[in-house]
Design a protein around this nucleic acid. Structure first.
Length: 428
DNA sequence: TCTGGGGTCCTAGGACCC
DNA sequence: TCTGGGGTCCTAGGACCC
């Protein structure tokens, strides 16, 4: 059996931890640039605050009901996430924990007897809460997709379920599937949900279990659909993943705090994003062979029904030799900007994507490129270490600029209580 | 006026090879 | 006039996730 442990309104819970007077009060957390609502508590939901909706639309509602509002504080959330995951590793053994996202992990519970799962799940939930202060919901079932269904039900009926649902019999599974609208199934997004309702009269997860695999292959995205239907029927098709997987691409993309029309600012931003991406690259011991830069200009056509980002204009460059050196990547990235920038346009976003990643130890030499000395790696290590131990970006490349007019806004960010000495929680 | 920032996997179709 | 069959590799784009 597999469990999914999912933190309740994770970002909001992190904020509440240091401001307990917000318990049982409505709270929301905003995305970068204070653009969207990316976490909300049940209380905020009850007032009609939409998840993933734009902040400016929800603002009247938020002010009317005095919803506590925070900009996102990823240092804080990242640290608390780590504590939650460590707790799970202690409880079930680290080899049985697959961290799925910042606030979720799958647990392999096959070593526990079926009869013990309910007790075990409650113990997991209570221990995480006791050790970290973060409330979680636990869903247990024979497959990942079904455990997600269980978790969903636990979250929807917190009082009745105490945030724990174990689907350990056929009857329970059937009932759970009948109670789950198709759009809430893990792997069925908005597009498929609409399509399924319209064409095929599939309205619940249970309806989908009546479909054949051939049908799923044709109508639900090929092998992805096959796996989904198998898992809903109780047949595992998504294995537990080994951890420490290295990423196949690394991206750093941001909206600008204010729109930018000057190529110098865009180059500074792109150089900064490249530095950040290169840090991520080195952290996983990779080097990149392809660097892709894109910019997004301000949308002129505003009268559409559904919000769409402006078209991204990008181009890429294949490096002669894979590299993880910030200065080499920055040089390529900044040159790409020259080809993309159009004078007179106003830009609101840019991004850098590194791909074609290879292990840093096995960089393919090139006849025309003499072997690198070790100096560059040492320099990069030093910069990474200093930036990590001191504070963000104390050392950076000149191309990143010093004025940074384009930096994003986060006006309502809480202190980084657990990762910065000078922002630590104070008790008088 | 103001709508995030990462990622993954898969498919179709084109180019190319023998 | 007539133009195979099988394979690989790559890219763009679409769907999904949190």
């Amino acid at each position: 059996m597999i469990a999914i442990v999912d933190c309740n309104s994770f970002y909001c819970s992190c904020e509440r931890l240091f401001q307990p007077h917000l318990d049982n009060k409505p709270v929301v957390v905003l995305s970068n640039n204070d653009g969207c609502i990316i976490s909300r508590t049940d209380e905020a939901k009850a007032f009609g605050v939409q998840m993933a909706g734009p902040y400016f639309l929800a603002k009247p509602l938020i002010e009317k009901h005095q919803v506590a509002t925070f900009s996102s504080n990823y240092n804080l959330y990242g640290d608390l996430s780590w504590r939650v995951m460590e707790t799970l590793r202690v409880l079930v053994g680290k080899e049985n924990v697959e961290v799925y996202s910042v606030d979720e992990a799958f647990l392999n519970l096959e070593k526990f007897a079926l009869a013990d799962l309910q007790i075990m799940s409650i113990k997991i939930k209570e221990t995480v809460e006791l050790w970290t202060g973060i409330k979680v919901s636990v869903g247990v079932a024979p497959t990942k997709v079904l455990s997600k269904v269980a978790n969903h039900l636990a979250k929807k009926n917190k009082v009745a379920t105490q945030c724990v649902v174990v689907l350990d019999t056929e009857e329970k599974i059937t009932k759970a599937l009948q109670d789950t609208p198709i759009g809430e199934v893990w792997g069925v997004g908005r597009q498929y949900a609409e399509k399924l309702k319209e064409m095929n009269a599939v309205f619940t997860a249970f309806d989908l279990t009546k479909k054949s695999e051939a049908w799923a292959q044709k109508n639900l995205g090929g092998v992805v659909g096959i796996r989904l239907v198998k898992e809903l029927k109780g047949e595992p098709a998504n294995e537990m993943e080994k951890q420490l997987t290295v990423k196949k691409m690394i991206a750093t993309t941001r909206m600008f705090g204010i729109p930018v029309k000057n190529i110098k600012d865009i180059k500074e931003a792109v150089a900064t994003y490249t530095s950040r991406a290169a840090e991520k690259l080195r952290r996983q011991q990779s080097a990149a062979t392809i660097i892709n830069v894109f910019v997004v200009s301000k949308e002129t056509n505003n009268n559409q029904t559904r919000f769409r980002h402006g078209p991204a204009v990008g181009s890429y460059f294949t490096l002669p030799v894979a590299t993880a050196a910030s200065n080499e990547l920055i040089k390529a990235a900044v040159q790409l900007v020259d080809g993309l920038f159009e004078k007179g346009k106003i830009y609101k976003k840019a991004g850098v994507i590194l791909s074609g990643l290879v292990p840093i130890t096995s960089i393919q030499g090139n006849l025309f490129d003499q072997k690198k000395t070790n100096n560059k790696n040492c320099l990069m290590d030093m910069i990474d270490n200093i930036n990590f131990s001191m504070r963000d970006d104390i050392l950076k490349f000149a191309a990143s600029g010093t004025t940074r007019n384009w930096k994003m806004r986060h006006e309502m960010r809480s202190p980084r209580y657990t990762t910065r000495w000078d922002e630590m929680f104070e008790v008088r």
